[in-house]
């Protein structure tokens, strides 16, 4: 931050360099200090921790790659990594597909007042008690739960839904569906209406207009929405545990188990760092696809 503060220029970048005064530092420093101490330092310590060793259940400062080797030579760790990637991708795909008709309807088929109401109804749950909303699925999905009661009246079932991949995906949808609809909606609402009218006038059918005009125009938002779904679900702990039954595990469950059994912090750190790096790679890849070669629009 000292280096950053030295080059402060006032007046929204008119180019006049001034020494940072107390006023500028008063507003600029709190974030740098707080996130430096409580975010960057723990993140750096995570990297260091992956090289520490555990001897007789005690942590020792060390520089040893044994944790990396141990973790990645285990078949189930690699399997869990690939499975979690798959779950994240599945969640991103299912969320995006299920969200699109709703986002499309709110963007094109309703009045501005209804759209504002829809946005309000979607923002609210995103910030509201994810854990409680996941828990409340249990009596709906369980063996003798509400859905199976309904199925029994219709003459079939019971269907196993809790403690299956289906249950996990329901949890993922609970986590991200509102956010994905919102992000898709914002990008669809910015699509130039005259493009759509032009397509219609030139005889392009409804479905073709959606896929050849609207989706490519809203590409950036659609990709970002899917990426957010991936990021949230890739690291989620609650859904695979309380709706998916923890088996087979995801990376989050692996981290918690590694810490609980044997108190092996450095190995948990290896998994955590792998997840952070994976998320960074995925985020940058998505940004590249969203903005990178955007000139090639059809």
């Amino acid at each position: 931050m000292a280096a950053a503060a030295e080059g402060v220029t006032a007046g929204a970048g008119r180019g006049r360099r001034v020494r940072p005064d107390g006023y500028a530092l008063f507003w600029g420093l709190p974030l740098a200090v707080w996130q430096g101490v409580f975010f960057l330092a723990p993140l750096a310590f995570l990297v260091v921790m992956t090289f520490w060793s555990v001897k007789n259940f005690r942590l020792e400062a060390d520089f040893d790659t044994v944790n990396w080797v141990k973790m990645w030579s285990k078949g189930y760790v690699v399997d869990t990594y690939l499975r979690t990637l798959g779950y994240g991708a599945l969640a991103a795909a299912v969320c995006s597909l299920l969200a699109f008709p709703a986002a499309y309807a709110l963007a094109f088929k309703v009045s501005p007042a209804t759209r504002r109401l829809g946005v309000f109804l979607l923002i609210t749950p995103f910030f509201t008690s994810y854990i409680v909303r996941v828990y409340s699925w249990q009596p709906v999905l369980s063996e003798s739960g509400i859905l199976n009661t309904v199925f029994a009246h219709l003459g079939f079932g019971p269907v196993a839904m809790l403690n299956t991949l289906f249950g996990t995906v329901i949890g993922y949808l609970t986590l991200c569906l509102p956010l994905v609809i919102l992000l898709q909606l914002f990008s669809l609402a910015n699509v130039d209406r005259s493009l759509i009218e032009a397509a219609h006038n030139l005889g392009c059918g409804r479905i073709r207009t959606v896929f050849l005009v609207i989706v490519p125009s809203a590409k950036v938002g659609l990709i970002l929405a899917a990426t957010f779904a991936f990021i949230l679900c890739f690291g989620d702990f609650v859904s695979p545990v309380s709706l998916g039954g923890s088996k087979p595990p995801t990376l989050s469950i692996l981290i918690v188990d590694t810490v609980k059994q044997g108190n092996h912090w450095p190995r948990a750190a290896v998994v955590a760092l792998t997840m952070v790096v994976t998320l960074i790679v995925v985020a940058f890849t998505a940004l590249y696809f969203a903005y990178g070669h955007g000139r090639a629009r059809r």
């Binding site: 723990p42 918690v256 750190a269 955590a272």
Partner: peptide
């Protein structure tokens, strides 16, 4: 920070 999974944020802060 919100793009880092909360589990990992919790873990690194507990470690640190």
């Amino acid at each position: 920070p919100p793009t880092i999974p909360v589990l990992i944020l919790g873990l690194i802060m507990l470690m640190f």
